[in-house]
């Protein structure tokens, strides 16, 4: 995580979980970066990564995805896995960050 902070990049996790649930997760896993709660999946929908009825009892949730957004607010890199088990490796995200200068 410090490799991201050294590059001036913040990592932000977003899900439909409530702040209390995310807090539990952060405590148990020792995560220190911001976790944001999108209970109605509004932002998730805007980014086009909604998984309709993907959660328990038909709840709309997010599909796994990573977006790199530059300081001007433009999306510069996107990673969309096709398997919930496989997420972007930190190396891949760092490589995308190092290409940002251009």
């Amino acid at each position: 995580m410090s490799e991201f902070h050294d590059r001036g990049v913040e990592v932000i996790a977003i899900s439909v979980d409530s702040p209390a649930e995310s807090q539990k997760l952060c405590q148990s896993r020792g995560y220190s970066f911001p976790f944001l709660s999108d209970p109605d999946a509004q932002v998730i929908r805007q980014y086009g990564v909604l998984h309709p009825k993907g959660g328990a009892e038909g709840k709309d949730i997010a599909r796994p995805a990573e977006f790199l957004v530059d300081t001007a607010g433009t999306i510069r890199w996107v990673n969309l896995t096709d398997d919930i088990r496989v997420r972007a490796r930190p190396e891949a995200v760092l490589a995308a960050i190092s290409r940002l200068r251009s």
């Binding site: 991201f4 590059r7 001036g8 990049v9 913040e10 990592v11 932000i12 996790a13 977003i14 899900s15 439909v16 979980d17 649930e21 997760l25 998730i44 980014y47 990564v49 998984h51 993907g54 959660g55 328990a56 709840k59 949730i61 997010a62 599909r63 796994p64 995805a65 990573e66 977006f67 790199l68 957004v69 530059d70 300081t71 510069r76 919930i84 995200v93 960050i97 940002l100």
Partner: peptide, 12 residues
């Protein structure tokens, strides 16, 4: 300089 938005399924 940039942010990485990580969308995840959550634990509901």
């Amino acid at each position: 300089r940039a942010v990485v938005l990580v969308f995840y399924r959550g634990y509901w």
